[in-house]
């Protein structure tokens, strides 16, 4: 039943969106290149290699981003850090999505249960969440999966609130009423009518969540929690380099900092493009 499917092909939509949002396209290319390079290599130096004779060199022909205090190549380490930083951020966002969306749906029913969920949410969000994350990871003995848990805990309430506000307004829409009048069952209402119409905002939120997770993750490792040496991560690299800033050796902290900045920017741009696309496809 080809003609009972959605009309414009997905590839065509993607291509048009990419053309209209050069920032998001650039961001997407940047992320893909970074991920592939960090996973597949090759890197000029091993990220674990140290060279006492070549410590704290400023950027030059052999060490493009200079070297750090142990003589490690900042460029190789910055690229390599993307492997663990981005995968943890993605995992955190994915867990938040998988848990937050169903909980958000549950919180948007009319019953008293949904009121309770919303109140619990308010109480939960009153916690300083970064400190909660810090405590969780430290108490678990620096387990990486706890970093994922901490990130998702921060983002689940956001998904829930988003879903709730979207669903509450969609539930009043005429086409939902039409589907009810038609005799649609509750699962059909949710999967055929509700979710396809909130999918766009969920994607936007996911992109923003990934950006936010990168920041949280970097903050944790900056504080010495979570990813630990010798695995490179942007947060710990910034911490290592922070002490050298005053002595003019800016490159050790600056390049991983720029990496965080660019990733966050890229995901924000992608979120913008998806949001724009979603808003317009209604026309």
């Amino acid at each position: 039943m080809a003609d009972l499917q959605l009309a414009p092909s997905r590839a065509a939509v993607l291509w048009r969106t990419a053309k209209e949002h050069p920032g998001a396209t650039l961001g997407g290319v940047f992320i893909v290149v970074l991920v592939l390079w960090s996973l597949l290599g090759p890197l000029p130096y091993s990220s674990a290699a140290t060279d006492g004779s070549a410590s704290r060199q400023s950027p030059n022909g052999t060490h493009w981003f200079g070297t750090d205090g142990t003589g490690g190549d900042v460029f190789s380490r910055t690229i390599d850090a993307a492997r663990v930083d981005l995968s943890l951020a993605l995992a955190g966002a994915a867990v938040a999505l998988v848990i937050g969306v169903p909980l958000g749906l549950a919180a948007s029913t009319k019953g008293r249960g949904s009121q309770r969920i919303v109140r619990a949410l308010d109480a939960f969000q009153a916690f300083p969440l970064l400190i909660l994350a810090l405590a969780l990871v430290t108490l678990s003995g620096n387990k990486l999966y706890m970093v994922v848990v901490a990130i998702s805990l921060q983002n689940i309430p956001r998904y829930m609130r988003l879903l709730r506000s979207e669903v509450l307004s969609l539930r009043e829409s005429r086409f939902m009423e039409a589907a009810t009048a038609m005799g649609a069952t509750t699962p059909r209402l949710i999967f055929k009518h509700l979710l396809p119409n909130v999918w766009g905002v969920i994607l936007v939120q996911t992109s923003l969540t990934i950006a936010n997770s990168i920041v949280v993750l970097s903050s944790l490792s900056f504080l010495g929690v979570g990813v630990s040496a010798p695995t490179p991560s942007w947060g710990s690299m910034i911490r290592d380099g922070a002490g050298n800033m005053s002595s003019g050796e800016w490159w050790i902290a600056a390049f991983p900092g720029v990496a965080v900045l660019l990733c966050v920017l890229a995901f924000n741009q992608i979120a913008d493009a998806i949001g724009d696309r979603t808003a317009r496809s209604y026309r």
């Binding site: 003609d3 009972l4 499917q5 959605l6 009309a7 005429r174 589907a179 649609a184 119409n197």
Partner: peptide
Amino acid sequence: ESLNPRMSIGAIVAE
């Protein structure tokens, strides 16, 4: 407003 904006006309009438 009474038609789901994400569904094709065929899918809407078939429902």
